[in-house]
Structure formats: C-alpha cells, structure tokens
Amino acid sequence: MPMVLGQNQYGKAETRVVRVRRDTERHEVKDLNVGVALSGDLSDTHLTGGNDKVLPTDTMKNTVFAFAREHGIDSAEAYGIRLARHFVESQPSITRARIRIEEYPWNRITSAPGRDRFVGADEIRHSFVRDGSETRTTEIVWEHGRARVISGLQDLVVMNTTASEFRGYLKDRYTTLQEAYDRILATRVSARWRFSFDACAGASEPDWERSYTQARRHLLEAFAETYSHSLQQSLYAMADRVLTHRHEVDEVRLSLPNKHHFLVDMEQLGINNDKEVYYAADRPYGLIEGTVHREGVTPLIPVD
C-alpha cells in the first residue's frame, strides 16, 4: 500500500525581536517572540530532497528583523499580517503562512512625584519594567525564640534603552567583545532583603506591605536613574537605595543576569539598522551577584 504525505509545514520558531523607537520624545519598545510556519507545494522536498521551492528558515528570521526595521511594529497584529502576506505573495511555492506572536509588554518606570531624580529629567523616558513578570517572596526562620525575616522578589524584568556603557575592561587573546558606549541594559532582578526586626526584642512589626512596595520602588528608581558603566554599578546603586530609604532593612542581596540584546547586523540585507532592532539572546548570559549591608551588620542572607 503506497504512503501518502499528509499536512506539513516548516518555519522558524521563536525569533525574539525587540524594536526601539528613538524618534519620539520618549523611547517606545515593542518586544515580540515571533514564530513563522509556511505550507504549500513542498512535496518534492519530502519525497526527493529537492529544495528548489524551499525558502530557508534563516531567511524567515532575517525577514522578521528587516520588517521590524523597515516598517516598524505599531501592533503585533498589523506586523504579523504584513509578514504573512509577504511570505505568500513573494514565494509562488508558498500558499499558507502562519505567524504566531507573543508580546511582552513593558511599562515605563516612574519616579515618586515631586522628587528630584539623580541624572536629570530624561532618564524615565528610556527605562522600562516588564508587566506581570515578578513574584514576591518571603522567608521566615524562627529559631531560639527569635525571628529572621528575609523578603524579596524574583523575575522582575527591567530595561534601559540607553544610558549604559561597558568599556575599559580586561582583554586577552580570547577577547572578541567590542566596547559599548551606548547599549541596552536589561536584567531579570532577583532581590532579597533582610529585616532588622527582632520579635524577641519586643519591637513592633514593620508595615510589611508598605515595606515591600517601597523597596520595589527604590530598586526600580535606582535602576532607571543610574548612568551605568557596568551592571555591577547598577547592582550597588539599587541595594544602596533600598538601605538608604528603608531603615527597617539591614541587608540586600541581588542577583542580576544580563539579558543581552544584540544589534542585528542587516548590512548584507542592504538595510541600515541604527540602534533600533535587536536580538534578545536567551543564553549564555553574564550573571552579576552581590550583597550590600549596613556597616557593622553581619551578612546573613544565604548565597544560592
């Protein structure tokens, strides 16, 4: 009994494209995960290995980036329609294109009303926090009649689209990284802070809800307002801000993976990409960790 090739498709999955609009007073960010699947007259490819009707998946990836640069991303829907239509209308062998898009929204980081910001009036226009990303955490250890409370958050994703550099670092014969004078700085914040509260001392409990809200706010403000020469510098500024403004906290530990955004090279496509379209890399990544505590205080937050 002969075999029959049934429904089939091929494509490029999970192309992460980040589009930054810099031609407005405030930067605008669109962060998408794009999947492309194409179907059509592709039987020969499966049966004989002929590739004369196959558009390479690498070309699909390049098209995703190129359309983000040439046409912009006003909405995921409009962008997806434009891509799908292009693949079908530009390739006679392709009769169906499916575009699936996940969009990761970013909210602008705002400072407290009426407070002077560290680096002037512009930094809030390029600092973002991704919606619904973080999880609040707390750990309580009661031992020998005393309570140790460590609260925090994890997976708080933040990004500055400018005001970040990385240069002047050590170089050896294995170093290929180019110095960056204006880069995207993004990270997924995991933070823990230890309270000075001691139940045995008879002290009243802190306002836990307000303390969390304010600690989170100070982490975000410090990230947004620090002109960063390294992620280490941002880490210290964030922890220092919490300790300066939240007197019930004695120690802050931060873990900041560097969520790399690499500028897509479109020179071979004949397209000028002037710091607008980036590839959001998943791994490997740099991981910056550190603890900041008050002078005279013994650090107690365990290192993972």
Rank of each mutant, 00 (worst) to 15 (best):
V129H: 00
T137D: 04
H144T: 11
W142D: 12
D131F: 08
G132A: 10
R136Y: 07
R146C: 04
G152R: 00
E123Y: 11
L156W: 06
G132D: 14
H126S: 11
I150M: 03
R136Q: 10
H144F: 07
I140F: 08
E139A: 08
E139Y: 08
V149W: 08
G152W: 00
D155L: 00
F128P: 04
I150Y: 02
I150L: 00
E139T: 09
G152Q: 01
T137R: 08
R130I: 07
D155I: 02
G132F: 09
D131R: 12
D122G: 12
G145E: 04
D131N: 14
S151P: 02
S151V: 07
S127W: 01
I150A: 00
E134K: 09
E139V: 07
E143I: 07
F128G: 05
R136F: 05
E123Q: 14
G152C: 01
A147R: 02
E123W: 15
R148Q: 12
S127D: 02
L156G: 01
R146E: 07
E123F: 10
V158A: 01
D155E: 07
S127C: 07
V157K: 09
Q154E: 13
I140A: 08
L156K: 05
I140L: 13
A147H: 09
V141F: 05
V141I: 13
E143S: 10
R148E: 13
R130K: 14
L156E: 05
E123S: 15
R125D: 15
G145L: 02
W142C: 13
T138W: 14
D131E: 15
T135N: 12
T137L: 09
I140E: 08
S151D: 10
E123L: 11
Q154M: 08
H144W: 07
Q154C: 08
V157R: 11
W142T: 12
D131I: 13
R146L: 04
T138E: 11
Q154A: 07
V157E: 09
L153H: 00
E134W: 14
V157W: 03
R146G: 01
D155Y: 02
H126R: 14
